[in-house]
Measured scan of single mutants.
Amino acid sequence: SPEVQIAILTEQINNLNEHLRVHKKDHHSRRGLLKMVGKRRRLLAYLRNKDVARYREIVEKLG
């Protein structure tokens, strides 16, 4: 489901952010981070168009 995919991506994004705080010059990982953020944004847009209630619920849960 989109909610699960968004939750997994959010966790991976948070982990990668911590990694990049330590390894500032790791541009390869930064590119992966940007791809993940874009994918999460697309999934959220899809969910917002399909079911606003589910969209609001996941945004509330994940912050």
Rank of each mutant, 00 (worst) to 15 (best):
S1Y: 15
S1W: 15
S1H: 10
P2W: 14
E3I: 06
E3D: 05
E3T: 04
E3C: 07
Q5H: 06
Q5D: 07
Q5N: 05
I6Q: 00
I6E: 00
I6N: 00
I6G: 00
I6V: 04
A7E: 10
A7G: 07
A7I: 15
A7T: 07
I8Q: 09
I8H: 10
I8N: 07
I8P: 01
L9K: 00
T10I: 12
T10N: 04
T10G: 01
T10S: 05
T10H: 02
E11N: 06
E11C: 13
E11P: 01
E11T: 07
Q12A: 11
I13T: 00
I13C: 01
I13A: 00
I13K: 00
I13R: 00
I13V: 01
N14D: 06
N15T: 11
N15S: 10
N15K: 14
N15Y: 12
L16V: 04
L16Q: 02
L16M: 07
L16P: 01
L16G: 01
N17C: 15
N17H: 13
N17K: 15
E18W: 08
E18A: 11
E18I: 08
H19Y: 14
H19G: 02
H19I: 06
H19V: 04
H19N: 03
L20Q: 02
L20G: 02
L20V: 04
R21S: 06
V22C: 14
V22K: 11
V22M: 11
V22Q: 10
H23N: 10
H23C: 10
H23K: 03
K24Y: 08
K24E: 08
K24G: 14
K24R: 11
K25V: 06
K25N: 13
K25I: 07
K25R: 11
K25M: 11
D26A: 05
D26E: 05
D26R: 04
D26V: 03
D26Y: 04
D26C: 08
H27E: 09
H27K: 11
H27F: 12
H27Q: 11
H27D: 08
H27A: 10
H28L: 10
H28K: 14
H28Q: 12
S29T: 08
S29Q: 05
S29H: 13
S29A: 14
S29N: 06
S29G: 09
S29W: 07
R30A: 08
R30F: 10
R31A: 11
R31F: 06
R31N: 08
R31G: 05
G32Q: 15
G32N: 15
G32R: 15
L33G: 01
L33M: 08
L33C: 10
L33W: 06
L34E: 12
L34A: 11
L34M: 11
L34F: 08
L34I: 12
K35C: 12
K35H: 08
K35R: 09
K35G: 06
M36L: 15
M36R: 05
M36C: 05
V37A: 05
V37G: 01
V37K: 09
G38N: 13
G38D: 13
G38Q: 13
G38T: 12
K39T: 07
K39S: 05
K39C: 08
K39A: 10
K39D: 10
R40N: 01
R40V: 14
R40I: 13
R40G: 01
R40F: 13
R40L: 14
R40C: 09
R40T: 03
R40H: 03
R41G: 06
R41H: 11
R41W: 10
R41K: 10
R42P: 00
R42W: 08
R42Q: 10
L43W: 04
L43E: 01
L43R: 00
L43A: 02
L44D: 00
L44H: 00
L44I: 03
A45S: 08
A45N: 09
A45Q: 11
A45V: 08
Y46P: 00
Y46V: 12
Y46D: 15
Y46T: 10
L47K: 00
L47E: 00
L47Y: 01
L47T: 00
R48C: 11
R48L: 07
R48P: 00
R48S: 03
N49Y: 09
N49V: 14
K50L: 15
K50D: 05
K50F: 14
D51W: 03
D51S: 05
D51N: 08
D51A: 03
V52W: 15
V52A: 12
V52K: 13
V52F: 15
A53D: 15
A53R: 10
A53K: 13
A53P: 06
R54L: 14
R54K: 13
R54S: 06
R54D: 02
Y55T: 02
Y55K: 02
Y55F: 08
Y55Q: 02
Y55N: 02
R56S: 06
R56D: 10
E57K: 07
E57Y: 04
E57R: 04
I58P: 00
I58E: 03
I58A: 05
I58T: 03
V59I: 13
V59D: 01
V59W: 05
V59R: 03
V59C: 14
E60S: 10
E60L: 11
E60D: 07
E60Q: 12
E60I: 10
K61Y: 08
K61N: 06
K61V: 06
K61M: 13
K61H: 10
L62A: 02
L62G: 02
L62C: 05
G63A: 14
G63F: 15
G63Q: 13
G63P: 05
G63D: 07
G63K: 14
